[in-house]
Amino acid sequence: MGPPERDGGFSYTLAPPRASELNGFRIAVWPEDPSCPVDHDVVTAMDDALNALKAASAKVEVRPSGLPDDMATSHDIFLRLLFGAFTYDRSGLTPASNTALLARLAQHPRGEALYALRGTFQSYYSWLQADVARHELRQRWTEFFRDFDVLLMPVTPTAAPPHHNKPIDRFGRRIQVDGRSRPYWDQVKWSAIANVAGSPATTVPVRTGRDGLPVGLQVMGPSGGDLTTIKFAELLGRELEGYQPPPAFV
């Protein structure tokens, strides 16, 4: 479609990949976080990736001290901005969904339902605070990616969970992480990091988990560095088991 007319013909060109071989990338790794534990399948996928990077003589730093974000802060900003969208469009709020929301709030007063209720009815000033925090966070990520080219981390804490079969109840779901019950909304915490930062992230198929489901990792890069994350994912993917189609689809 080209640049919007309202921008006066301004166009944006993506930066080229920062490296063309794995050993040319400066790689940070965020393998796990106590705010969102990952299960054995994801740990194994990360081990596979780190072994592949080691074999390629890549420059890797695990848990660098300069990470500009923490999981709890990122998730809080993400939820405030996400549910803030409903302050404008509340067409999805039906009597049934509202009843389910209030029921979960009564059962778990400090759970995700509270974030939804607060976020949906927050003031503009509250949303603006979250937006300012987002832009401050984006600047810190810009500085981080002066020292690193990509950040490797989980996409979700588990492989795909079983179907929930409850279309209304968005806040009663649970997932199992190595036998421990966790909130279903843990599934968005890792991907929200790049989302809040406004940075590109590319998923790399790594291996097949214990239940035969695919497990991947995500590669986050600097703003405008889409071609960097894509190139790194391509190179790393060549060294891994990758995606294996289910037997019925081979």
Rank of each mutant, 00 (worst) to 15 (best):
G2P: 10
F10E: 13
Y12S: 01
R18T: 04
A19P: 05
L22D: 00
V29F: 00
E32M: 07
E32Q: 14
E32R: 09
D33Y: 05
D33S: 15
P34E: 13
P37A: 00
D41G: 07
V42T: 07
V42I: 15
V43N: 13
G66C: 12
P68M: 04
P68W: 05
A72I: 07
A72P: 02
S74K: 01
D76L: 05
L79Q: 12
L79E: 10
R80I: 02
R80L: 01
L81E: 03
L81W: 01
L82A: 08
A85M: 12
F86W: 13
F86Y: 15
T94A: 10
A96Y: 06
N98Q: 13
A103F: 06
A103K: 15
A106W: 07
A106S: 09
A106K: 09
H108L: 11
R110Q: 14
G111R: 02
A113N: 12
A116E: 04
R118N: 13
T120C: 13
F121H: 12
Y124D: 11
R134V: 09
H135Y: 14
R138E: 09
Q139M: 04
Q139C: 02
W141E: 04
T142F: 07
T142D: 15
F144P: 11
F144M: 10
F144G: 12
R146E: 14
D149G: 00
V150E: 00
L151V: 08
T158G: 04
A159D: 14
A160K: 05
A160W: 05
P161L: 07
P162Y: 08
H164C: 06
D169T: 04
G172F: 07
S181Y: 08
S181W: 13
S181G: 07
W185R: 06
V188G: 04
S191C: 10
S191H: 09
I193C: 06
N195Q: 07
V196T: 13
V196E: 08
G198P: 09
A201R: 00
A201S: 15
T202F: 14
V204N: 08
V204R: 04
L213D: 12
M220S: 06
S223R: 11
L227T: 03
T229Q: 03
E234L: 13
G237Y: 01
R238K: 14
R238G: 08
L240M: 05
E241T: 15
P247F: 10
F249L: 14
